[in-house]
Design a protein around this nucleic acid. Sequence first.
DNA 1: GTGCCTGCAAACCCTTTGCACTTTA
DNA 2: TAAAGTGCAAAGGGTTTGCAGGCAC
Lengths: 158, 158
Amino acid sequence: MTNGRDMIPQKQIDRRIQEFVEACRAQGIKTTNQRMEILQELARSEQHPDAESLFLGVRKRLPSLSLDTVYRTLRLFEERGIITRVGSIKERARFDANTKRHHHFICTQCGLISDFYSETLDRLKPPSEVEAVGTTDTVYIELRGICNACQAQKRAQS
Amino acid sequence: MTNGRDMIPQKQIDRRIQEFVEACRAQGIKTTNQRMEILQELARSEQHPDAESLFLGVRKRLPSLSLDTVYRTLRLFEERGIITRVGSIKERARFDANTKRHHHFICTQCGLISDFYSETLDRLKPPSEVEAVGTTDTVYIELRGICNACQAQKRAQS
DNA sequence: GTGCCTGCAAACCCTTTGCACTTTA
DNA sequence: TAAAGTGCAAAGGGTTTGCAGGCAC
């Protein structure tokens, strides 16, 4: 592998793998070859790859790997907080006809989406260092949490 | 239809429809019954509905409506800036092994995702009015724009 | 009347799942 | 060796598309 701009220092990756092995021990997850390689492939990239890219990359070293193992592994890692998913919680597409500038609160439990308005957030400027990467058109902000209804329900259950 | 809490004043909807008709005239889009009804259904709701909910709602008034017309209409409206989609630009899931607190810049043209760090953004607090809806766990921020490579390419073309 | 729009049905793509076999601890 | 993990193939769910007829302009 060449030292292209999408490379993370090997030292950092080793530390990440070390953390991972410990996390697995602590959580009772088996540290299989497949999982190690998938995590390493992800940790090594700065491209925020999708399941298929990871699959293609890891398969060079592990030709028997199957795509569904990649999906299963990523889901497992995400559930355990070992990795994160970029962007919104994936669900079906939802739409909005509100043309006034606004932001969303999203309940991670029931999926409620609620509009709110905030001049402070509207005025938020992207940090200048981002200019090195590109020009920002919009600052998308999403508050994620638990709505009052879901909280009340939780309290009632306990 | 009852006056539940998910209702938007009819006056506001009428204004929205009026805007829509004008936008269609201006852009040379036909104002069909289906489109009017779909937009009205969306404008009337505060639930940020998905394609299927809209389909079920509109079908009460337009029984011949098909689900793919709803999809086509929503896509058209979105392209023309008449409505917006909640959450990230929908594409396949992409993952991240970076465990340091960070944010993303996303190029809306090529899909590049780039990490950046900002203490200002890390410290951002949700506006207090959101407490009326629920408790915020995380503030998700995404900068959307055009990366330098895509800009250079655009310039080269013109 | 012309060309955009619609409904229908089938295709599509990403992701998930059931099952039998394999591997890890 | 017991339980967890894997590969395979097939299903699943949301979304898109090709086509023939229908409708707005």
